[in-house]
Amino acid sequence: MSQIKALRGRALSRELAGACIWIVLGLYFLIFSYQIREPLTLNKFDPGPSLLPKIMGVLLICGGVYAATKTLATRDCKRDDRNSRGSRLLAATVFFYIFLLPVLGFHIATAIFGVFSMVIMSVGPGKSLICTLAIIALIHFVFVNLFAIPLPGFMGS
């Protein structure tokens, strides 16, 4: 029983956090819209470049407040029991991959990421290495050889 309560509490917190996303985004657009300078040559009938950001900011705040109030009032929250550990781990891996990309270059960074990513998704190390090398070769051929599109080089070269 207490476990169900804890789960419901966690789901409720998640719903409230979701509502907060709208409020934070709304505040961001509203506050920084005041930093947009009105040009001196502005047509007097043009409401200017800051009007819509202000409206969007206010709408997001109102929407977020409404969503939060509704969640609190009804205690209505959809339980999401999915394990997000895999998502978080992969997101962190991708983050480091993108971080390493301009430093190590496409080929080395992708080789490290590819093998690591496949291994954490339960693919055998040998198979991971072969598949990663195949993907790198395919991308190199398509982007560099076929279409002459540069890929990130070692140390930004």
């Binding site: 991959y97 990309l101 990421f113 590819g114 990513s117 998704m121 540069p150 890929l151």
Partner: peptide
């Protein structure tokens, strides 16, 4: 295996985004 497909998608997404404007 799903792990291979997902990894390939990530790499294609990264390269695809980079290639727009390098």
């Amino acid at each position: 295996p799903k792990g291979v497909v997902l990894t390939a998608v990530v790499i294609f997404s990264v390269v695809g985004s980079f290639a727009m404007n390098s």
